[in-house]
Design a protein around this nucleic acid. Sequence first.
DNA 1: ATCACAGTACTCTGCTTGTAGTGGTTTACC
DNA 2: GGTAAACCACTACAAGCAGAGTACTGTGAT
Lengths: 182, 182
Amino acid sequence: MRTNPERRTALVDAAIEVLAADGARGLTFRSVDVAAGVPNGTTSNYFANRDDLLLQAGLRIHDRLGADPAHLDQPPSTEFLTSLLQLLQQRLTKDRTGYLALLELRLEATRRPTLQEALTKKVRENLDENIRLHQEHGLPGDPLLLYLTVGGYMLEQLTLPGVLPDGLLEKVIRQLAGSTPV
Amino acid sequence: MRTNPERRTALVDAAIEVLAADGARGLTFRSVDVAAGVPNGTTSNYFANRDDLLLQAGLRIHDRLGADPAHLDQPPSTEFLTSLLQLLQQRLTKDRTGYLALLELRLEATRRPTLQEALTKKVRENLDENIRLHQEHGLPGDPLLLYLTVGGYMLEQLTLPGVLPDGLLEKVIRQLAGSTPV
DNA sequence: ATCACAGTACTCTGCTTGTAGTGGTTTACC
DNA sequence: GGTAAACCACTACAAGCAGAGTACTGTGAT
């Protein structure tokens, strides 16, 4: 088992690429080798088995998607809320790979208790953080309702982008900003 | 290419089971043979290739999930809306297999334009029907907003059931029933 | 008797895994 | 500053497995 940290994260990132591109079906040691541009057998040397690789990818994804707190130093208003969600929409196109990989992992977690446990923990932390920030900034609308709606929107746009009408997210957000918390 | 219709749909149903249980990764001709309890090679004889099989599964799923209009002859009220969504929650546990398979197919559609096209058509039809019924019955709330929220809820419950607090759907629905259409 | 299908069995192909082995580079220690 | 040890990149290979596809036989219905 090799330990070189740079190469390790490079491999995990490559695994995320593979997940998004070819799904869990395409994730093999060899395909990660290829995606990372390293010789055959390298991923074998760094991870005990496929489960291990999936788990690492699941943890890493949240680091990649979560890290971007720069935009939070803004006035707590409805304007802010919409701008924050436009930002989310930007991310959805920019970091499509990461979100798709996360979806694949969620599905895979259905069959892997260990992965499910780890993902549940991470996703819940993320949700709690969302709620905390929402309340801390005194933002309008119910954070849980927002979370669900945005989640549904992302699923739809990621997998079947032709279904929803254009500009829906903005309209929806405008509605939600007017509703009161549970 | 064999044509026996009963066996054909039995194979497609088996394919849906396999999708939910093992994901797209596990969907092979042989695994469908096993799930359907037929001899090896049978699925090969009935479908040209994997793409074909996936497409058939995608079309069939909507028949399985959609057919249940009995509950629609009820008074158009907020009460009705909540009861209808409780029914959805029941379905989520009863027909978990179908919904999971649909999720897998959505992900797979990312890589298969033909499948994506077919699914987009079906899902959009479903959405349009939802909207139509919603308006026809004069139900409260915005149907698109409902659609997104319920979609997000379903994704969460299907893949990481430990994340959301109990009874959330009801609370959320109550909120949404009070909001006005876009 | 013919046709369509169920079921069996077999081959071929490709992919994946895991590891052994070699050579190079860095680190530590004298 | 030179040597030894540890670590790692990379190559190459052996072995196994799974899946696809198909040819063949038997059977029941028309």
